[in-house]
């Protein structure tokens, strides 16, 4: 019944990007999510925390986040996600939009 919380770390081959200030993006609508990215020293890794009512997609979350971290060359960031059943396409889109917001 309780919410499902997933915590894991991703590390890309050559981290080159970080966020300098906290950034928030998105709304936890149906099929959507919000993401909070904050600077976090983690030896170049990205700490991820996902809170979602849906279970059974742990591996999928890890793959989607790992691919995002790799493509964005992200390191030393904490990513927190509140999810309400977003598809991988929406997850990737929102993560990129959040990052674009951080760069703006």
């Amino acid at each position: 019944m309780a919410l499902n919380t997933l915590e894991f770390e991703c590390k890309c081959a050559a981290p080159a990007a970080a966020v300098t200030a906290p950034v928030h993006f998105g709304v936890v609508g149906s099929g959507d999510l919000e993401v909070l990215m904050t600077p976090a020293k983690a030896g170049g890794a990205v700490k991820v925390k996902v809170v979602t009512p849906v279970t059974g997609f742990d591996a999928l979350w890890q793959r989607v986040l790992a691919a995002f971290v790799e493509s964005a060359k992200l390191g030393d960031v904490a990513i927190e996600i509140n999810d309400n059943n977003a598809t991988p396409a929406v997850v990737t889109l929102r993560l990129r939009q959040a990052l674009a917001e951080a760069a703006a």
Binding site: G31, V54, F57, L60, N85, T87, P88, A89
Partner: peptide, 8 residues
């Protein structure tokens, strides 16, 4: 098509 539909 999106790679995942409703309910993933």
């Amino acid at each position: 098509i999106e790679t995942f539909g409703e309910g993933r």
